[in-house]
């Protein structure tokens, strides 16, 4: 019987301020120092996708992250779910890095830790929400990118995904290596079991600086800046429909208008 080729998978993970707590601003940026952090809930889908592929095909899941030393907590969370090892890039020069810089650094880390058959990222972070990092990363790595993945299927040497669109989805297939960005709902992330949490302590995590990646602070100069922050528009009060017998029909009309039905 032909042995399947094991998949070497990299999953990008980010440590973010707990989105369940009210966010605070530090100048024009989200306050991070001293704020309770978590593994980005959006990244849990990426970790789960990696773990499922590993379980189906064999192989290894490596978590790749960039952030201050405290970001190790997010890496450990992913390891406690079942990932095998981690890489954290920390460097004082990376404070305030934008999405493009992040992609450049993650690309260097992935190149150094690889080669990988598949790179997985969430479609966007739950703090900055730029949503540009996965595409930039694929460009830096020279990989085909399959974005907005709502379901996926790995095969020998290729991956096939359903890619979310406004109207429905596209079925896209690509040879490996490739990069995918996964949406929330692509799977049901597992609980980190207590045994997994205990085991995560002993799993290897490499901590690299920019110098380890042969990058200099010039390579990570931030060209993007936030110029203004405005309040989100307050939600308008809903429309109250008095039911005079036509209530159901009016709700149906409303849902049709919203293209829900």
């Amino acid at each position: 019987m032909e042995r399947k080729k094991a998949l070497n998978i990299a999953v990008c993970v980010k440590h973010i301020p707990d989105p369940n707590l009210p966010g605070e601003l530090d100048g024009q940026r989200l306050k991070r120092a001293g704020v309770q952090g978590v593994l980005d809930p959006g990244d849990e889908f990426g970790v789960e996708a990696g773990l499922q592929l590993k379980e189906a095909h064999g192989g290894e899941v490596t978590l790749i992250s960039m952030g201050p030393a405290v970001a190790l907590e997010a890496v450990r969370r992913g390891l406690s779910m079942g990932a095998d090892k981690g890489v954290l890039v920390s460097d004082d020069a990376l404070a305030g890095a934008d999405a493009l810089t992040t992609a450049r650094v993650l690309a260097a880390a992935i190149a150094k830790a690889g080669p990988f058959d598949l790179v997985i990222a969430g479609v966007e972070s739950t703090d900055g929400y730029t949503g540009t990092m996965p595409s930039s990363l694929a460009e830096f790595l020279g990989l085909p990118q399959l974005t907005f993945v709502k379901s996926l299927e790995g095969a020998e040497g290729s991956i096939r995904v359903n890619r979310q669109t406004v109207e429905g989805y596209h079925v896209v297939e690509s040879p490996l290596p490739a990069l995918i960005s996964v949406t929330a709902g692509v799977n049901e992330p597992r609980y980190a079991s207590f045994k997994g949490i205990m085991a995560a302590k002993k799993k290897p995590v490499e901590q690299w600086s920019l110098a380890d990646l042969e990058l200099s602070s010039d390579d990570v100069t931030v060209n993007q800046s936030v110029t203004n922050i405005g309040k989100a528009e307050e939600r308008q009060a809903g429309e109250v429909v008095e039911d005079d017998g036509s209530g159901a029909a009016r709700i149906a009309d409303f849902l049709k208008e919203a293209k829900v039905i």
Binding site: Q36, E73, R76, R77, S80, Y191, A192, S193, F194, I197, M198, A200, K201
Partner: peptide
């Protein structure tokens, strides 16, 4: 009091809470 917990203890607590 949360700050007095280790990262591992917080993870266990969070997992139990989620369950």
């Amino acid at each position: 009091i949360d700050r007095l917990l280790t990262n591992e203890e917080r993870m266990i607590r969070d997992t139990a809470r989620k369950f």
